[in-house]
Amino acid sequence: MSLLSVKKLRLKYGEQTIIKDASFALEPGDFACVVGANGSGKSTLIKGILGLIKPASGAIEFGEGLDQTKIGYLPQDTRPDANFPATVEEIVLSGCLGHMKMRPFYCHHEKKHAMESLAMLGIENLAKHSFANLSGGQRQKVLLARSLSATKKLLILDEPSNNLDYKSRKDFYKTLAKLNKDQHLAIIMITHDLDADDLIGNKVIALENGTATIAKTEDYLEKYK
């Protein structure tokens, strides 16, 4: 069974149908970039996969050991108040909430897992730092570490390079590629840019007129570039 199977998915906002038909499957270790024009429904599609929007029809099936609460999500709009009082550790630990069920406190294993997520990105030294005092690139890594605390199988990132400068963006992509390769982590990433440099995955999910189609990155580039 695939890690993620999306079958004839239809998603609506009120009466308006945003996604008419999305059908694709992802295997462990796949890295899919979601592309499409503004308003084509990229964010809607991933919110559907995450269960934040209820499907009008169709099905989303997960492979063994994965469900909607065990996906590592990096939202597009996470621009916390610069004065928000939180340490990196507090934020990264919150990624473990999906494993807690009704338990009120984090267990030793979850605390260890959060520290491992920081170590995976080489930022364990920032654990006690205030989130507000970090640079844009560091903040994005912290939020990625939070997503890693939530999952061992699938990351979903909504335009993660939006607020990053060129160098930070390259650095961030390098980190994602390493996670994908070393941890065999499947990744779905919405990207706004259609440069070949930004299509860093092995697959592309293209959204056009409410329909999602999946292709290998080289085939997609061959067809559209």
Partner: peptide
């Protein structure tokens, strides 16, 4: 006390909190 960590998650980033099942 019971919901401290969930309150933190909702306060910091509601959409992420929803995605992990809060």
């Amino acid at each position: 006390l019971f919901a401290y960590h969930r309150i933190f998650a909702i306060t910091f980033d509601e959409e992420f909190a929803k995605s992990v099942g809060v």
